[in-house]
């Protein structure tokens, strides 16, 4: 008998006694999104007290709209990260999609041609990522790093390096979709809220969602028990690209222009959102609500520093601090796999 197995036999009784089924409150206190939510409220409370101009409808409108774009992408990214992968290409896909949609609008095609075409273009890049990762078997980091470069380059080629502001006859519709609001809340925020519920539901209650966690937990075991691992890996990269494309189309309407530089550096903010929200870059853990709240926290920090008159260059330092702190807290609570 191998020694580590003999050891497992010895500890079994102790373990049996030690494990209790956890209550809701225990689970809540053990969850990273809960503490991030607390931190978020603490920062908002502090800022509201310290800076009268902070707690205004206008500012909250801006904060929520700003993080909605990142949050939407974080949902797709989370699906990828849960399987143990990573998608570094979301920012570039975003840029490419905005140019594709912009060019088609500029050619005076209707919005219902241009925007779906943009989505499709994004999905196509995601499919290339997914195919190479799932079926050829190259590492996600490398493949999506390649797409990070290639996607941006496609956008530059297609746009001829200019800004597209002429959205043709349907300009008003495009501006309304991404820049409009319903009941005082920006449209992208509604989209994010809806997606958070949908993704939360899928991650928790569908077999497809649960199998993502299985792949991230033990890919080989998932494969052996009949989970279609390759197909699902392909799907998550397409999904991630679709979320980047959706976000891009909303930004298009908000900014009223398409530029090929759109989304530069966004991949890091998106990944940071999921990690702050409790996702494990090794795969197998993460929640939709966590990704939502992670995206919110980053924007609240950025906005707070701005309002407090702190040099905007400090933003990265604070976000970095929160990423490391969040993961460190996770570790000392003993929930880590290590």
């Amino acid at each position: 008998m191998p020694p580590e197995k003999a050891e497992a036999a010895n500890v079994s009784i102790q373990d049996v006694v030690g494990i209790q089924q956890t209550t809701f409150i225990q689970r809540l206190f053990a969850s990273q999104p809960f503490w991030i939510t607390m931190a978020l409220f603490a920062i908002i409370a502090f800022m509201s007290f310290y800076e009268p101009a902070y707690a205004t409808e206008r500012n909250f409108y801006n904060i929520t709209r700003n993080f909605a774009f990142i949050g939407i992408m974080a949902m797709g990214m989370l699906a990828v990260i849960i399987t143990g992968g990573i998608d570094l290409s979301v920012g570039s896909i975003m840029g490419f999609v905005s140019i594709v949609a912009g060019v088609i609008l500029e050619a005076h095609y209707p919005w219902w041609v241009a925007l779906p075409a943009g989505m499709l273009a994004g999905a196509a890049l995601g499919a290339i990522n997914g195919y190479i990762i799932a079926y050829i078997g190259l590492p996600p980091f490398v493949v999506t790093l390649g797409m990070l470069a290639a996607g941006r380059s496609f956008a530059q080629i297609l746009s001829g390096n200019r800004m597209i502001t002429d959205f043709g006859p349907d300009k008003a519709v495009v501006l309304e979709i991404g820049g409009g609001q319903i009941l005082g809340i920006a449209n992208p925020v509604w989209v994010l809220i809806l997606l958070t519920f949908i993704f939360g539901f899928v991650f928790n209650y569908t077999s497809w969602g649960r199998r993502l966690f299985a792949i991230g937990g033990n890919e080989q075991a998932a494969q052996l028990t009949g989970v279609p691992v390759k197909r699902m890996k392909f799907q998550v990269y397409v999904l991630s690209a679709c979320m980047a494309a959706l976000s891009s189309i909303l930004i298009l309407g908000w900014q009223g222009s398409a530029i090929n530089a759109l989304g530069i550096g966004y991949e890091l903010r998106v990944i940071a959102s999921t990690v702050i929200g409790g996702a494990d870059l090794m795969g197998g853990a993460g929640t939709a609500y966590g990704a939502f709240i992670g995206a919110a926290l980053i924007e609240v920090i950025r906005n707070g520093l701005l309002m407090a008159g702190v040099d905007a260059n400090w933003q990265g330092a604070f976000v970095g601090l929160f990423i490391v702190l969040a993961v460190y807290l996770e570790r000392i609570r003993g929930r880590s796999r290590a």
Partner: peptide, 24 residues
């Protein structure tokens, strides 16, 4: 029954049991 058991550490016992043939 595999020698290394082929289990996903991050899932519950029931989820592991039904992995690949979940009851829906």
């Amino acid at each position: 029954v595999y020698q290394d058991l082929a289990l996903c550490d991050n899932l519950t016992a029931a989820e592991n049991l039904f992995l690949g043939r979940e009851i829906r």
